[in-house]
Design a protein around this nucleic acid. Sequence first.
RNA 1: CGGGGUGUAGCUCAGCCUGGUAGAGCACUACGUUCGGGACGUAGGAGUCGCAGGUUCAAAUCCUGUCACCCCGACCA
Length: 620
Amino acid sequence: MPPRWHRNRQTVRRSSIDWGANKLLAALLVTPQRRSSGRHDSRGAHVRYAPMRLSRYPISTLKEIPGDAEVVSHQLMLRAGLIRRSAAGLYVWLPMGLRTLKKVEQIVREEMNRAGAFELCMPTIQPAELWIESGRWRKYGPELLRIKDRHDREFVYGPTHEEVITDIARRELRSYKQLPVNFYQIQSKFRDEIRPRFGVMRAREFLMKDAYSFHTDAASLAEGYRLMFDAYTRIFTRMGLKFRAVQADGGSIGGDTSQEFHVLADSGEDAIAISDADDYAANLETATSAASAAPRHGPVEPLTKVATPNVRTIAEVCALLGVEAARCVKTLLVDGSAGDVVALVIRGDHELNAVKSQKLDGIASPLRMASTERIRASTAAEPGSLGPLGFKGTIYVDRAAAHLADFVCGANDKDTHYRGVNWGRDLPEPRVVDIRIVQAGDPSPTGRGTIKIARGIEVGHIFQLGQLYSAAMNASVLDEEGKALTMHMGCYGIGVTRIVAAAIEQNHDANGIIWPQALAPFQVVLVPLNYQKSAQVQEIADALYRDFNAVGIDVLLDDRDARPGVKFADSELLGIPHRIVIGERSLKAGKLEYRHRRETESSEISAADPVGYIRDRLNS
RNA sequence: CGGGGUGUAGCUCAGCCUGGUAGAGCACUACGUUCGGGACGUAGGAGUCGCAGGUUCAAAUCCUGUCACCCCGACCA
């Protein structure tokens, strides 16, 4: 069933504005009966149904929150009629929402162009051969949507475009003189997420700006990477978002150096560690802290074995023995890459970081905890009384655990623990690694300040890929000596659709969205009161509407025959930054009422030059 | 994929336990009154009760299967 848009019984006045290409749209919006009764201008085109009059604009706001929307941005996007769900993780962008999406796109495009990147457009459907060649046909897993055409040939719906761009680059680029170069596109991606959620925030099909740069060497790549870092900083700054660039893990895309851009919001899915004294910031997955500088204390206590019946957790051990968790050590057994079991030792009050751990030699990636059967087979102990003492096999010890003296650990014997354990005396000196999750209050690794934990929404990610794909796909150019040179690559993503949701998460109140100026679908909403009754109100509202359009300010005229409360509520839900109320009451005094979406009180402005007033505010 | 939950009008939901043939509010249509913060009245349109099978004189309701969606965990822009 088609939605029913707001209608206006009243005949709209003839407008002098030339709508150009919008005429066709305007004509299409007209119902058949109306078309027959409409009037035509001298060129025979329809001009009566100006598209930015709310009586004709297809908005459909909801008072109630659709039941499946969990986070505010999803709720507000549905309530304001920006998107509608088509299937799990698949969304339709309605006209009002698309306006904001296009603004995001345009800012990204302008800044990418300014950084010297070239826009191109790759197909969403990609041939399987390229993925087989890069090795990701096997590696990518079920998130990759694989499809067949009528000839039974295999394709994928692209979740990313490294293969296609590398293929193009190796065919088009021949000489080092053509480098460095950066290509980007703003294109739909499909990732068959296990659990799409939060509306457009984690959708399966989404819009992404993806850029790929090609270089002769690592130094040039680092320079190109820096250019992208700067471009991203400008992009998110222009959008009026509070964001933070953080160190990141390469994940499935691969590569060494990588940073994420996070929009800070409490509802964010990612935790990030931020120093309170300098610019250190990292995804919790890779965040580290300063290792203790002081030397380890020497042994004092003798090694003693104590009975700890039915004690399994660190908390229980502490309670029984009267020691702090920070003086205990916990030993976690994980699957090794050779079918064995590897022991990871961390301090009792710390937690294991899976991303850091799975990078260690001899550990299976992704990280898996060893099954109870395997634990029994390799140690003859039960989980709960495991320890490094007497463990046969590889042992990795976290820096903080390695710094302990006279500590407590499991004895690898059911219902017993050791206390007074010391590295070097009772055990060999450990293999020291960094495998724990940093905690709020830890010292920053830069040596200045302490770590705070914040939450963020990842809206951008930049990588130095190196020769990962170019080597696999043999993408080379000739160097100065005429020898083949494997190109160095960087890749740079921005979640275009996700930005819209992230901006709302960061900018809303109880009444609705509060768009940052750069993302607002319209800058100004005109709210005439009694538009249908008062000739004066109608005349002034129409004139203002023409004037704003004439100077190129996006304006929406709420000419609906609705009560004031409805118009106010909708203008706030939609989050239009500037609202001008045209009412007979203030017109008598030669005034209009102005209110910014962030303000709680209206102010009177002169009716003489509202366009100039708004223009000043837009520029300030 | 594992665990939990829900499918009844465009939206939010009641009815289901205890079978008796479909409801409310919002939205929509018409008319009237109203009109500076989501009005009111009257009338109206709209649902194969997710789908399939079964039990029964009778199924939204009970049973079986199936599909879809949502929530909690490992992935990502």
